[in-house]
Design a protein around this nucleic acid. Structure first.
Length: 362
DNA sequence: CAAACGTGGAC
DNA sequence: TGTCCAAGTTT
């Protein structure tokens, strides 16, 4: 503990305030157990994976849809992987969905549908890292794990006024966050991380936190010193995003079919459907476009985490028999193409090419 | 360990 | 328009 704090740090005072706030202000979320009922490990796991690097509003509909289609881990495990990927379409970070499917298979087939209860065993499963293991073990099984997500990091960085920038400060912050959990009973073990996350999401927000209504403001160094909370956690400046360009092909047959392809594991958007094109992700080969007349439909731009992309959309038509399908390529009926769960990049291509196609005189 | 890995909403 | 961000994991 740094001696420089303007107050005497007291774990139990902090915890009491946080939990009392939670009892009055907890959010009602679809994956959360109602008061006095046990949480479902399946729901906790599914929601935690969906919520990784994603917002609560975005996850809600996906969670409802998944649990409606697949009420148990066995249902999910027994579903065709494509169906799961289709339902994940639009949520992003598709490795999460691929790992979700693998994890469901293991838990369903090898573990009799029971999730492990310890962090150590949970972490062995695909898609479950340090955070998610801690979250599941505490929320679903009542273990007093040190759960540190972005919210907890932010709260700790302000409460203890951590001056080292992220991500260097991760270890330091994690060590400080242990204080938040020290001595929590099993009865409250699952509430504590959720309470911190609720405070982080609704009070101790990244920008313009509501310190006036914060239950722990008198224990917060940044607040007590009148520092600017917006500056915490400190961060290193980010590198500029590179820009890439490529081509994507809307290839239609004279029988009103469209060529789509399932992207392989090692590519970006792996296991998702898309349209053929140049290798804009730097993996694999460019699509060899047939030697026909291609109409330029327009450009699609898309911003990924680490680069921006502009794809030129080209549209062409040829006889069915002339189309050579590579592995993982399919011709689907024009009436079905809108029902394919494309990732957002290809959804944009679709929205550009389909109307252009419908305006065509033929 | 730094970099890869999506998306849409807020300001 | 650009920038930041949201319950991280994997390699």
């Amino acid at each position: 503990m740094k001696k420089s704090h303007v107050f005497e740090w007291n774990n139990s005072a902090f915890q009491q305030k946080v939990l009392a706030w939670y009892d009055q202000n907890r959010r009602i979320l679809p994956w959360r157990a109602k008061k006095n009922s046990k949480p479902s490990p399946y729901h906790v796991w599914l929601s935690e994976v969906m919520l990784q690097q994603t917002t609560v509003p975005a996850v809600k509909k996906y969670f409802e849809r998944f649990t409606s289609l697949w009420p148990t881990i066995h249902d999910l495990a027994n579903s065709p992987p494509d169906a799961v990927m289709q339902e994940w379409a639009g949520l992003g970070y598709y490795a999460r969905a691929r790992n979700l499917i693998k994890c469901a298979g293991i838990v369903s087939a090898d573990l009799n549908g029971k999730f492990p209860e310890t962090e150590k065993d949970l972490k062995l499963l695909p898609g479950i890292g340090p955070y998610t293991a801690a979250a599941i073990s505490s929320i679903a099984f009542g273990n007093n794990s040190v759960v540190v997500d972005g919210n907890v990091e932010r709260i700790a960085s302000r409460v203890f006024m951590v001056d080292n920038p992220m991500p260097l400060a991760k270890k330091e912050i994690h060590a400080l966050a242990k204080h938040f959990y020290e001595g929590i009973t099993s009865k409250r073990a699952g509430d504590m991380p959720q309470a911190l996350m609720d405070i982080g999401a609704t009070v101790c927000t990244p920008k313009s936190p509501k310190c006036e209504i914060c239950p722990i403001s008198d224990l917060c160094t940044v607040k007590q010193r009148n520092e600017n909370p917006n500056l915490y956690p400190r961060k290193l400046p980010k590198a500029k995003k590179p820009h890439r360009e490529g081509k994507v092909y809307w290839l239609e047959t004279e029988a009103k079919q469209i060529l789509i392809e399932k992207r392989s594991d090692e590519r970006m958007l792996g296991w998702m459907f898309g349209f053929p094109g140049t290798s804009w992700d730097g993996v694999g080969n460019d699509f060899t476009a047939p030697d026909i007349d291609w109409d330029m439909v327009g450009d699609v731009t898309h911003i990924f985490t680490h680069f921006s992309l502009k794809l030129e959309v080209l549209r062409g038509r040829m006889p069915v028999g002339k189309v050579k399908l590579n592995k993982n390529q399919y011709l689907i009926d024009i009436t079905e193409v809108e029902n394919v769960g494309f990732p957002s990049l290809y959804k944009k291509v679709l929205k550009l090419a389909l109307p252009a196609r419908n305006m065509d005189p033929e």
